[in-house]
């Protein structure tokens, strides 16, 4: 029960234990020797020669794991992919990051990797949608596009000589504004075909970043490029990002509608429950938890309580076992 931070009553404890045991029994036995904990010896064929990689060490002629994780083998190399660690980027991953610094021709982003990632000004579509060379003026106007602390969605482009680079070459990438950012352990998010989700019936956007950052927010229509810009193209000038100095009344008008906000909070709490239980986070599972809470007529805040947690664990066990039977 990996230190679940919950106060459970005796019956709830038993129910949770049972659900978790069921989940464990469902996981495939084929791969069970691939997962290791610290000090487990990893079987290797010494005649072929072994290259010890990350998370392994040599102990009395045996290769021993120094991390909890899954053993990976590439030719001679043996290494352990750890479970709880920072995010490890792969080319093409969709990630969510927060701007740390606006630097020369680039933004520096925190994406929960051991280094900061770079998003070059030239690696993104301009908000006006025109394809052109980036001028010095564009560089001066970088703060109008993204500022420090802004939350941005982008794609991993790859490693260049100076670090990890991202790109945002489509209108679906870019700044995320109204909503909340959640952080979950990155191993709970698997790479999928689709990471951008629009839940139409609720009017919310859900972006599941591969780095464990999850955005839940009000739905924004992806702007169609090339349309608006011709009209309001003004003379080039250095723009100053407008710090909002609107009055309270004006601000209140712009707040998210209460109905939408309820759905946003509900979806966010569904993600929180899943991450506290350590279940894989995908759209279907989030939706399942979301609808479970709606159908059991639960207050949004009560979703974080122990009773609902146990309920989710039981449902998940049920779902996985029925999936298994189908196959």
């Amino acid at each position: 029960m990996r230190g679940i931070q919950l106060q459970l009553s005796q019956t709830q404890k038993v129910r949770l234990q049972k659900a978790l045991e069921q989940l464990e029994s469902l996981s495939s036995k084929v791969n069970s020797d691939a997962s290791v904990t610290i000090a487990d010896s990893i079987p290797v064929n010494h005649e072929d020669g072994v290259l010890k990689g990350h998370g392994t060490t040599d102990l009395n002629g045996e290769v021993v794991a120094t991390l909890c994780g899954v053993v990976e083998r590439v030719n001679k190399l043996v290494y352990v992919r750890s479970l709880r660690s920072r995010y490890k980027p792969e080319v093409g991953d969709i990630v969510i990051g927060r701007v740390v610094e606006v630097a020369q021709k680039r933004w520096r982003l925190d994406i929960n990797y051991s280094q900061n990632a770079y998003l070059m000004l030239s690696a993104m579509n301009m908000p006006d949608g025109v394809q052109r060379r980036r001028t010095a003026l564009d560089e001066l106007n970088m703060r109008c596009i993204f500022e420090e602390m802004d939350v941005i969605c982008a794609e991993v482009r790859g490693f260049q000589h100076d670090g990890l680079h991202l790109q945002a070459r489509s209108q679906k990438y870019g700044k995320l504004s109204t909503g909340q950012l959640l952080t979950v352990p990155p191993y709970l998010v698997k790479r999928q075909k689709q990471h951008f989700h629009h839940l139409e019936q609720y009017g919310i956007d859900l972006i599941i970043g591969c780095n464990g950052f999850i955005w839940v927010g009000e739905h924004v229509e992806a702007r169609d490029d090339m349309v608006e810009d011709q009209v309001n193209q003004t003379d080039p000038q250095v723009l100053i990002p407008n710090k909002d100095s609107v009055s309270f009344e004006e601000q209140e008008k712009n707040y998210t509608a209460l109905e939408t906000r309820k759905y946003i909070c509900r979806a966010a709490n569904a993600v929180r429950v899943l991450s506290s239980l350590g279940f894989i986070i995908t759209l279907e599972i989030i939706k399942g938890v979301f609808e479970l809470s709606l159908s059991s007529n639960l207050d949004i805040h009560d979703m974080l309580g122990s009773e609902f947690c146990v309920l989710v664990a039981e449902k998940e066990a049920e779902r996985r076992s029925s999936n298994k039977k189908k196959r």
Binding site: E148, Q180, N254, R261, C265
Partner: peptide, 22 residues
Amino acid sequence: GLSLGEQHFIQGGIAQDLRCDG
């Protein structure tokens, strides 16, 4: 650190009596 959008979202939630965690 929070972006302007998130700050606005939090303030809106408090004004509407529904905070980020419900």
